[in-house]
Structures are given as C-alpha cells and as structure tokens.
Computed example of a mutant assay.
Amino acid sequence: MTTLDVLLPYYGNVALMQEAVRSVLAQTDRDWRLTVVDDGKEPGVPEWFEQLGDPRVRYFRNEQNLGVTGNYRKCLGLAEYEYLVFMGTDDVMLPNYVANVRTSIEAFPGVAMIQPGVEVIDGDGKPASSLADEAKRRLYAPRRTGRYTMGGEELAVSLLKGNWLYFPSICWRTDAVKGTGFRDNLEIIQDLALVIDLLQAGEEMAIDDVRSFQYRRHLSVSATSAFSGHRFAEAHRYFLDAADRLDAQGWHRAAKASRLHISARIHALTLVPGALRAKQWKGAKSLLKNAAAGSGRGR
C-alpha cells in the first residue's frame, strides 16, 4: 500500500525538474507516488512525462497559471495517501529519502512533520554553503543528534528565532496539512507559517540527522524578492500577526521571539550592500527599514 505522495508543483527550468523526477524514480523504497502539476508552458514537457511510462507518475498541466500558492493548493488537493512531501522542482532526493522518512513514521506514529538531514548544493549540483545555511546549522538548529521529536512552544521559539528547516525536504502528515491549509496573504514565508500553525494545533515534528535530501541554493523567487525588500516586508507582517496569536495561546516566549524576529532582520541587513551594488535604491531603503523593524509590543 502506498504511504507517500510526492507532490511536485512545477514551474521553471526543465532540466532541473527532470533531475528532480529522476531522483524520485531512483528511490530504493518504492512506496511512493509522484504527482507533477505544471504551472508553465515549456514545450516538450508533457511528451517527456508520457514517454516515462511509469504508472507511479501522474502529470497535470494547468490551463491557466495559478501562481505559487495556487499551485501548492492544487497539489495538496490531489494528495490521497497518509503522508506527502512538497518537493522543489530544482531539488534532489537522495536514494534513501523515502526509506528514511518511513523509518521516522514507524518510530513516531502519527507525527505530523519529518525534517530529514539535508545537504545544500549549488546550481551545478556541487556541495555549497552560504551565510544563511551556516547560521541555520551553527546558531539556530537544535544541538541534538540522531532521531527525536520536538513540538509545542519549545520548537516554535527555536524556529521563530531562526528558521532552520528546509521546506521542500519536509514530509508532512496529509490530514494535518489539509486541515490547516495555506494562508492567503503569504508566499515567501508560507512554510514557516504552516509549521507554526501545526505546532499551535498540538502537532509535533520528527527530526533526523541522516542525510537524504539535497536542497539547491541559487537565484530564486525568494532571492529576487529579498533584494527588493518584498520578502522581509511579508515576513515582518507575518511575525507581528503570529506574535498576537501566540500571546493569545499563552506562548509568551514564542510571541516575544516572533516580535523580535532577529535572524530575519539580520539577514535583511546583510543584503543591503548587494542591493546598493545592484543600484536597487528603493530595495536598499526597504531592507534597512525591515532590519530596524522589531516591535516592543507585547509581554
């Protein structure tokens, strides 16, 4: 019986998407189904999927562009099995991914989220490192090793201080995600919002340091919007809204971490020189504004 829906909301580079698909096909554990929802119009893509001839792979092409959140919602509506993953179309599953997350599911029955070990790669598929990834690993991620669970305010505080997760690698319990859904007013920070909503609903995350996924770090929607300042304006709005909801739940430490959102503000500040070099004056001004935007409201 199939346990895992691999959902691939696709738009963009054809070659990288094909590499992502091949990495799913190469899984040592065959307990998966791949669903690709194409939000673009690149020629030859439907024909490529047809020639795969694999009944475990479903391909759909949207008649109209749905955008990031719309396409994620469509993928979610197509999920039928107990667990799912929203895989990035430029990322790579290592051959042990499905087997590894199944081990976590068996170790922690009913867990809502599973974060496996992740390797960061560049546009050419070579191991890479960035300031953001080093900060995730050295400053924000838990110091524990092995396979364990976290939840409640403890995990919320940790993530709101600095989001050390890699969204495309996370395996989710399908009914938990469908019951929560995606927020209408978010795009870039949609992943963190979903995790915090699930934690507030009483769900837990399993964390495993066995490397089974490659996350590609290169120019993307989030990177482009970062220089413009849009990414951090959205994040600032989310953090203040989340803080009010966390205070209402009695999670005052998490609310304080959300209002301060120190790592996001530091990140905005580090991008100012790049925005200036690119002569994005309005973006640089917006980044500076967001870097100074912590709120002292609340407890």
Rank of each mutant, 00 (worst) to 15 (best):
I105L: 14
E106P: 05
E106I: 03
E106R: 14
E106K: 10
P109R: 11
P109C: 04
V111W: 09
V111A: 10
A112Q: 05
A112K: 13
A112L: 09
Q115I: 07
P116R: 06
G117W: 01
E119C: 09
E119D: 07
V120F: 02
I121G: 02
I121K: 05
D122Y: 09
D122E: 01
D122V: 05
G123A: 11
D124S: 08
G125V: 04
G125C: 07
K126H: 14
K126S: 14
A128W: 04
A128C: 11
A128F: 13
A128I: 05
A135W: 10
A135F: 09
R137K: 13
R137E: 06
R137D: 03
R137M: 08
R138F: 12
R138V: 14
R138G: 03
L139A: 07
Y140A: 12
A141D: 07
R143D: 13
R144D: 14
G146Q: 09
R147G: 06
R147Y: 10
Y148M: 08
T149N: 03
T149V: 15
G151V: 12
E153G: 05
E153V: 10
E154L: 07
L155P: 02
L155Y: 05
A156H: 04
V157W: 12
V157L: 06
V157S: 15
S158K: 12
L159R: 02
L159Q: 04
K161Q: 15
G162N: 11
N163Q: 01
N163A: 02
W164I: 08
L165F: 09
L165C: 07
L165Q: 10
L165P: 00
Y166H: 13
I170E: 02
I170A: 03
I170T: 07
C171M: 10
C171P: 06
W172S: 00
R173K: 15
T174A: 08
A176Q: 06
V177H: 10
K178T: 14
G179L: 03
T180L: 08
T180P: 02
G181R: 04
G181D: 07
F182D: 00
F182M: 00
F182Q: 04
R183M: 00
D184E: 14
N185H: 15
L186N: 04
E187M: 11
I188S: 04
Q190T: 13
D191A: 09
L192Q: 12
A193L: 01
I196Y: 07
D197H: 00
D197L: 03
D197K: 00
L198A: 10
L198S: 05
L198R: 06
L198W: 00
L199H: 00
A201Q: 11
G202C: 01
G202T: 02
G202Q: 00
M205Q: 08
M205A: 14
A206K: 04
A206L: 08
A206H: 05
D209Q: 02
V210N: 12
S212H: 06
F213W: 10
F213K: 01
Q214F: 00
Q214H: 06
Q214W: 02
Y215C: 12
L219W: 08
L219K: 11
L219M: 05
S220V: 11
S220R: 02
S222Q: 11
S222N: 08
S222Y: 11
A223C: 03
A226P: 01
F227R: 00
